[in-house]
Nucleic acid binder design. Structure first.
Lengths: 136, 136
DNA sequence: CTGAATCCAGCCCGATACTG
DNA sequence: CAGTATCGGGCTGGATTCAG
């Protein structure tokens, strides 16, 4: 844990991650994947990366999300300590969501994944096309 | 709607990832998240990081996966070009799965996420506990 | 040993309507 | 404006059984 940043270009050395056997349910990687793996969490985290946003702003920024899912996803993110929720007691009421330090720290590893995805999507699509082509 | 916001603040480098608006379905990050977000893909990728493994070996290494899910997950990974499948025509038949170069390249960003998860799981659990405690 | 096929439970998520 | 409640569909994933 003394080298948080310099592992950028090292060879894969994720040996200690077993997660198998008996206690797979409380595997740390599983916990975070269950969170970012759902449909909207990652998108909302990315949306909040450049500052706090109100509920309605998020809603408009992600047009195809329902109020239900927006509320629920924000709740989960808040519960895990990724986002903070601040209520302004005005009329009409307004609520601001923002990334906590913990949430912001997630942006870094997330960026690695995002960059990888953007860079390799063509290869994935190509592989997918070939696979579907060869398999009737 | 364009993006009138400037990436000031302390945001890392995920500027160009919008994914909102009209074409959210073919957003690259969404594609990869749908893959690694499922229950077994990431675990199997990590399992294959130190060399090819046979079907039965993987099965025994991840005791709580069903044959159905093992086959299905491997198929998806193969389809996306992450793993290669080699059949040895013997009796009884044996099949070996291994990471492709594309799959290996995913190990790097994945490692970042894994490390982050391992390092911050205590904070997450703590936040979760506090949240559940404060909410009746 | 590897894998396909079927049945079935659970939940994720969307649409809608209603409150403060 | 922000959030809750309810209903229902579709997909994920587990158990079992059969086949090459």
């Amino acid at each position: 844990m003394a080298s948080p940043l310099t592992q950028a270009q090292k060879a894969p050395a994720i040996a200690h991650i077993q997660c198998d056997g008996d206690d797979l349910s409380q595997c740390p990687i599983r916990g975070i994947l269950d969170r970012i793996g759902d449909k909207w969490s990652t998108l909302l985290i990315l949306m909040l990366q450049d500052g706090p946003k109100r509920f309605g702003v998020l809603r408009r920024a992600v047009p195809d999300i329902s109020q239900r899912m927006l509320t629920q996803t924000l709740r989960n993110l808040q519960r895990d300590g990724f986002v903070a929720r601040q209520v302004f007691d005005t009329v009409p009421p307004s609520v601001e969501y923002s990334l906590t330090p913990l949430g912001e720290s997630l942006l870094l590893p997330l960026a690695g994944l995002v960059d990888w995805a953007a860079m390799n999507q063509p290869a994935i699509l190509k592989a997918r096309g070939q696979f579907d082509e060869e398999r009737p």
